[in-house]
Each structure stands twice: as structure tokens, then as C-alpha cells.
């Protein structure tokens, strides 16, 4: 099966000298198309750093990384940005919605920077896509709401819709339920599960919550910047 992510000897260090800390310590990772990989580990083990590297958000790392079979090392900043915009969606723990924009405009943010002009040229189709996504995440008709008026769960749903706007092949999630209560977190996990199951989307979620791992096809355990264990591959367990 096609590898969406292939990382070899991924390393990342913060600081120098005696205070130096290895956030990533020679991580080898492969993610195949259609997999839902959960990376479990305690806070500070390097999960978010790994996600930043895998998403091409952080280029100052050691080792080699291929995304969709392409070595990202020689890619220019613009080419890597285009790849991110076209093929990768991000969901963050803190949602990172822009407070001055409506729900609709937040979801549309990726379209501003898309190099796929054809995909964003048809404004009506884009608007329909936003409406469809809002409906999918259970926020139909709330496109004009401002983030400040929404609950944490609703904001995270909007952030997921934003990540899905341009139909990426890979969804990278950084502690997606970290800021949510148990019930809301469960709803978000169900949403990811549905996206993965119904759209065969490749998902990598770094988390310290087991419930995310419960819907994943494979779980990686991380400690001290290194992958120390792996569960699976296994079939998807339903959460319904």
C-alpha cells in the first residue's frame, strides 16, 4: 500500500550544551494510505514536535522525510506550502480559529492560499462546500456565528471543517480532544472515526487520550522523543 508518510531517523533537539533536550530521537515512522494512526504518549514526549515535522511545519530536523513519496528536503518553501495546502489538513488542540472571522470565513481560510486556482475559483461551489461541511459537523446554518459565541466542541468542529475544506488526503491532529470535556471529546473522536471510515482518509493523531487510540487502526507509543512500542495494525473498532 502507498506510503503517505515515511520518516527515517527523524531527530529534533532544543537548546545546546548541557541544557540540550532531544524532542525527537531518531524516529522511524511509516503511515500507509487509509490508516488511522494514533501516537500516544505523556505530555512533553515529543508528540507535537513529531506532528510538526510530519506536516512540514518544522523543517529544522535531522533525518529524512518523504510525504506522498516525495522527499521534502529539496522542496522550496512555496512548494512545501503548496503541498500542505493541497494534501494535508491540520487540527490543533487550541483550535486556532481566527476570532475576527465568522465560522464560514474561518473554514474558508485555506482557500485564500490555495494554488489550485480551479478548486477555489468557483465561489458558489466553495460556498456549497462550506455549507456541506457545516452540516456534516452538525453546525448547519451557523456559518455567520463568531467563534467567541461557540463552545469548545463547536470550535473544534469548525477547525475540523477548515482542515477538510480542500479535501486533503492526510489529516494531522494534535491533541484534538485535549481542550474538551469527556462528552464533547467523544463526539470529536466519533467525527474523526467517521471521516476515516467514510472517506478512507489517512489520519495521524497525537494524543495522550486512550479513546482516540480506540478508533485508530494502529497505535504508536512515544516516550522521551522516541517511538517505543506499537500496537496493531488492527481493524477499526467501532465506537458507536
Amino acid at each position: 500500500m502507498e506510503l503517505v508518510i515515511e520518516g527515517k531517523g527523524l531527530a529534533k533537539r532544543y537548546g545546546e550544551g548541557p541544557g540540550m533536550r532531544a524532542a525527537l530521537d531518531g524516529v522511524d515512522i511509516e503511515v500507509k494510505r487509509g490508516e488511522f494512526v494514533a501516537v500516544l504518549g505523556p505530555s512533553g514526549c515529543g508528540k507535537s514536535t513529531l506532528l510538526g515535522v510530519l506536516g512540514g511545519l518544522d523543517r529544522s530536523f535531522g533525518g529524512k522525510l518523504w510525504l506522498f513519496g516525495e522527499d521534502i528536503d529539496p522542496l522550496s518553501d512555496a512548494a512545501l506550502a503548496a503541498l500542505r495546502g493541497r494534501r494535508i489538513g491540520f487540527v490543533f488542540q487550541a483550535f486556532h480559529l481566527l476570532g475576527h472571522l465568522s465560522t464560514r470565513d474561518n473554514i474558508l481560510a485555506p482557500a485564500l492560499f490555495s494554488r489550485d486556482h480551479q478548486a477555489v475559483a468557483d465561489r458558489r461551489a466553495l460556498g456549497d462546500r462550506v455549507d456541506h461541511l457545516l452540516h456534516e459537523i452538525g453546525l448547519g446554518g451557523r456559518g455567520d456565528d463568531m467563534p467567541a459565541t461557540m463552545s469548545g466542541g463547536e470550535r473544534q468542529r469548525v477547525a475540523i471543517a477548515r482542515a477538510m475544506l480542500l479535501e486533503p488526503e492526510l489529516l494531522l491532529c494534535d491533541e484534538p480532544t485535549g481542550n474538551l470535556d469527556a462528552e464533547t471529546g467523544q463526539q470529536i473522536v466519533e467525527l474523526f472515526h467517521r471521516l476515516h471510515r467514510d472517506q478512507n482518509m489517512t489520519v495521524v493523531a497525537v494524543t495522550h487520550e486512550l479513546r482516540v487510540a480506540e478508533v485508530a487502526t494502529r497505535t504508536l507509543h512515544m516516550r522521551g522523543g522516541a517511538l517505543v512500542d506499537e500496537d496493531g495494525p488492527r481493524s477499526v473498532r467501532g465506537v458507536e
Binding site: 506550502a81 503548496a82 500542505r84 495546502g85 485555506p110 485564500l112 490555495s114
Partner: peptide, 11 residues
């Protein structure tokens, strides 16, 4: 940073 994540380049 968010714009960069969703596809914006440094330029």
C-alpha cells in the same frame, strides 16, 4: 502560523 499551516508560503 495558522495561515502557513493551511498552505501559505513565507512569501
Amino acid at each position: 502560523a495558522l495561515y502557513r499551516a493551511v498552505g501559505a508560503s513565507a512569501v
